[in-house]
C-alpha cells in the first residue's frame, strides 16, 4: 500500500514543478497569443544556469533559482525586442503573426540549444546536493507553489498585473486606458521566460539533464496547458498535478520509456475531443 502513497506524493510534487514550467508558456500565450517554441530551450538554459552557478560559486539551486528568475526576466525582455516586437506590434490581430511568431521563437530556440550543444555537447549533467531525492522534490515543489502564488498575487493585486490581464483581453482598449502596451507585452514575455528558467533551475535539482532535455519539458508544458486550457492558471496547476500523477503511476506498471508515447496520446485525444481543455480556459 505504501508504494501507492509514495507514488501519489511523488506525482503531486513533480506535477507542481511541471506546472511552474507550464505557467510561463501559458502566460506568454495568454497575453501575447504567441506559442513560445523557445520555452524548452529556456528551461534547459535554467538547468545549466543552476549547474554552473553551483559548480563555480557553490550556490545551491534553491537559492540560485532567484537569480535564474532575474536572469530569465532580463533575457526574456531582450528576446522580446529582438525576436517578437517587430512582428507583434505591426499586426492588426494576432492571427497575422501566428506563423511568423512560431518561426521566430523556434529560431530563438535553435540559437540557445546550438550554443549549449557547442559548449556542453550532450553530456548528461547532474547537481549533487547533500539532500535525498525526496527532499529535493519537496523543496522544488514548495518553490513552485510560492512562485505560482506570487504570480497570482502580482496579476490580481497590482496595477501592472491588472494591466497585463487587460492587455490579454483587449489590447486596443488597453491602449485607450493609457497603458504602454509595448512595455506590457515585453514584461509578459520576460515573465514567461523567467518562469521557464526558474522551473529549469528547480528541475535540475531533482533530475539529471543535458543540452537537449528542454524539449521533453516543453512537451509536458504543452500537455499541461492543453489539459488546463491555455491561459487558465488554476487549470495549469491541476493539469501539472494530473500529468505528474499519471507519469508516476504509469511508471509503477510499465516501462518509463513509454511515458512520452502516453503523453502524446493524451495530447492528441484532448485536442480532438476537448480542444478548450478540461477546465475551459479563456480561448
Amino acid at each position: 500500500m505504501s508504494i501507492y502513497i509514495d507514488t501519489l506524493i511523488n506525482g503531486i510534487l513533480i506535477g507542481l514543478i511541471y506546472s511552474l514550467a507550464a505557467m510561463g508558456l501559458a502566460l506568454i500565450w495568454g497575453v501575447l497569443k504567441v506559442i513560445n517554441l523557445s520555452h524548452g530551450a529556456f528551461i534547459t538554459l535554467g538547468m545549466f544556469f543552476a549547474y554552473l552557478v553551483f559548480k563555480y560559486f557553490h550556490i545551491p539551486p534553491y537559492i540560485s533559482v532567484f537569480l535564474a528568475l532575474i536572469v530569465g526576466f532580463i533575457l526574456g525582455f531582450i528576446s522580446y525586442f529582438i525576436a517578437l516586437h517587430r512582428i507583434v506590434s505591426k499586426a492588426k490581430s494576432f492571427k497575422e503573426y501566428e506563423l511568423s511568431s512560431l518561426l521566430s521563437t523556434f529560431s530563438l530556440s535553435l540559437i540557445i540549444t546550438g550554443i549549449l550543444l557547442f559548449i556542453f555537447a550532450t553530456t548528461p549533467m547532474a547537481i549533487n546536493l547533500p539532500l535525498s531525492l525526496f527532499q529535493t522534490k519537496l523543496l522544488a515543489s514548495i518553490f513552485s507553489i510560492i512562485f505560482t502564488v506570487a504570480l497570482g498575487l502580482f496579476l490580481y493585486k497590482t496595477y501592472l498585473g491588472k494591466a497585463i490581464r487587460a492587455v490579454s483581453q483587449n489590447i486596443d482598449a488597453a491602449k485607450l486606458m493609457g497603458i504602454n502596451t509595448t512595455l506590457v507585452l515585453a514584461i509578459s514575455f520576460a515573465l514567461g521566460i523567467a518562469l521557464a528558467m526558474g522551473a529549469g533551475n528547480l528541475i535540475a535539482m531533482v533530475f539529471p539533464f543535458s543540452s537537449l532535455s528542454g524539449a521533453s519539458y516543453e512537451l509536458k508544458s504543452f500537455i499541461i496547458c492543453v489539459i488546463g486550457g491555455l491561459g487558465n492558471p488554476i487549470g495549469t496547476i491541476i493539469g501539472g498535478i494530473l500529468l505528474g500523477l499519471l507519469e508516476n503511476f504509469f511508471g509503477l506498471f510499465f516501462n518509463q520509456g513509454f511515458v512520452p508515447f502516453i503523453e502524446f496520446t493524451i495530447l492528441i485525444l484532448l485536442l480532438l475531443f476537448k480542444p478548450k481543455g478540461l477546465f475551459g480556459g479563456s480561448k
Partner: peptide, 9 residues
C-alpha cells in the same frame, strides 16, 4: 464604440 470593456475583469 462598442464599449470595449475588459470582460474577464
Amino acid at each position: 464604440e462598442g464599449r470595449m470593456i475588459f470582460p474577464e475583469l
